[in-house]
C-alpha cells in the first residue's frame, strides 16, 4: 500500500497529522517489517495521535488499550462472562432436565452433561478485551497500547509474548491466532525504564517537542480560524516557555487548546491582558504560571513585540 516513505507522510498529512521525516520512516519500516513501534517522549507531543492518524491513513480500525497501574490479563485480554453464564444456566434448567431425563444411570447422566458443557465455555461467553479483539478482528487493525510505562513490569512481560507470536491460548477453547497481524503502537511517557526485551523487539521512536515551524503548521492545520499573526505569536510564546525550567512544559496539545481558546474569545492579537488571562490554558501549576508571567513580562514583551 505504501511503497515510499513520502507516501506515508502524505497519508498522515491527510489525517491532519504532520509527520517529521523520522516519524514517517519509522511508520514505513513498521509497515514493511511488521514490527511494533515504541514511541517515547514528553506528554502531549502527539504519540497517541500518531496511532490514530496511522489507523486513519491505512484504513484500519483503531483498538486502544489504556494502561494503568494494576492492569491485568483479565482486563487486557479476555474475561469469562460469569453472570451471563449463570443466567443461561438458570434459563436453560428446563432444557437440561429434558436432556437428562432419558438417562437411566448417574454415570450416563454425567456423560450427557459433559457432552453439553462445551457450550458454557464457548466464544459466546467470552468477553474479549482490547488485546484479544485486536487478534480476532477480521479486518486489519492498529493496536494502540497507551502509556505502557504505567503498567507493571509483569504486564510488560506478558505483552511481550503476545507481540512476538500474535497468538494467545485460552485454556478452555484453545489457541487463538491472529487472523491479520495488527500494527502495534506502544507509547510511553518515560516515567519508568521499560525492559530491554521490549525495546529490542520494537522500532524506537523518540518524539520531541516540534520546532517552531512545524508547531506553527500544526496550529494552522488544527485551528484554521485563528489569525495567522496570533498563531505565530502563541507558538513563539510556547516555544519560549519550553526553554524555561517549568514543572510541566506546555505540550503541543495544549498549544492547540490555547489556539482554540483564543478563537473562542475572538482575540485579534495577543496583548498582555489576553496573555495573562489565558495562560492557565497551557500552564497547570501555580508556580509555573508565576514564573512564566515573570519571564514573559520582562522578556517576551520585547522579543515577540507584544503590546
Amino acid at each position: 500500500m505504501f511503497n515510499k516513505v513520502s507516501h506515508i507522510t502524505d497519508a498522515l498529512a491527510g489525517q491532519q497529522y504532520i509527520a517529521s521525516d523520522e516519524i514517517s520512516t519509522v511508520v514505513f519500516l513498521a509497515e514493511k517489517m511488521g514490527k511494533p513501534i515504541l514511541a517515547e517522549g514528553p506528554a502531549g507531543v502527539g504519540k497517541t495521535e500518531l496511532a490514530k492518524a496511522w489507523a486513519g491513513a491505512s484504513g484500519r480500525e483503531l483498538i486502544r488499550l489504556q494502561c494503568y497501574e494494576g492492569l491485568d490479563e483479565a482486563k487486557a485480554l479476555y474475561e469469562w462472562e460469569y453472570s451471563k453464564q449463570m443466567l443461561y444456566t438458570q434459563l436453560l434448567r428446563d432444557k437440561i432436565s429434558q436432556v437428562m431425563s432419558d438417562a437411566s444411570t448417574l454415570s450416563e447422566a454425567a456423560d450427557k452433561l459433559a457432552a453439553e458443557e462445551n457450550i458454557f465455555f464457548s466464544m459466546r461467553f467470552l468477553l474479549p478485551r482490547p488485546l484479544l479483539r485486536a487478534l480476532m478482528s477480521e479486518k486489519p487493525v492498529v493496536l494502540l497500547i497507551d502509556e505502557i510505562d504505567r503498567a507493571d513490569a509483569e504486564f510488560e512481560a506478558f505483552l511481550l509474548e503476545i507481540l512476538s507470536d500474535f497468538q494467545v491460548s485460552v485454556p478452555e477453547i484453545g489457541t487463538i491466532k491472529a487472523k491479520t497481524q495488527p500494527a502495534v503502537v506502544l507509547t510511553s511517557n518515560n516515567t519508568r525504564e521499560l525492559s530491554e526485551a521490549l525495546k529490542r523487539r520494537a522500532l524506537y521512536l523518540y518524539i520531541d517537542y516540534p520546532t517552531m515551524e512545524s508547531e506553527l503548521n500544526i496550529v494552522k492545520m488544527r485551528v484554521p480560524d485563528l489569525a495567522p499573526m496570533v498563531a505565530k505569536q502563541i507558538v513563539e510564546v510556547v516555544q519560549k516557555l519550553r526553554q524555561l525550567d517549568l514543572k510541566k512544559s506546555p505540550s503541543v496539545a495544549e498549544t492547540v487548546d490555547w489556539a482554540k481558546a483564543l478563537v473562542a474569545i475572538n482575540a485579534r492579537h495577543l496583548d498582555e491582558k489576553t496573555l495573562n488571562d489565558t495562560l492557565t490554558v497551557i500552564l497547570k501549576h501555580e508556580s509555573d504560571i508565576q514564573r512564566a508571567r515573570r519571564a514573559l513580562n520582562s522578556k517576551t514583551t520585547r522579543d515577540v513585540g507584544l503590546r
Partner: peptide, 23 residues
C-alpha cells in the same frame, strides 16, 4: 530496515538505522 528503505536517501537511511539501533 535498510533493505526496506534503500541507501539512496541518506536521511531515510539514517532514520532507519536510528530507529532500529538506538532505544
Amino acid at each position: 530496515a535498510i533493505t526496506a528503505v534503500g541507501v539512496m536517501d541518506r536521511q531515510l537511511f539514517k532514520n532507519a538505522l536510528k530507529t532500529t539501533l538506538i532505544k
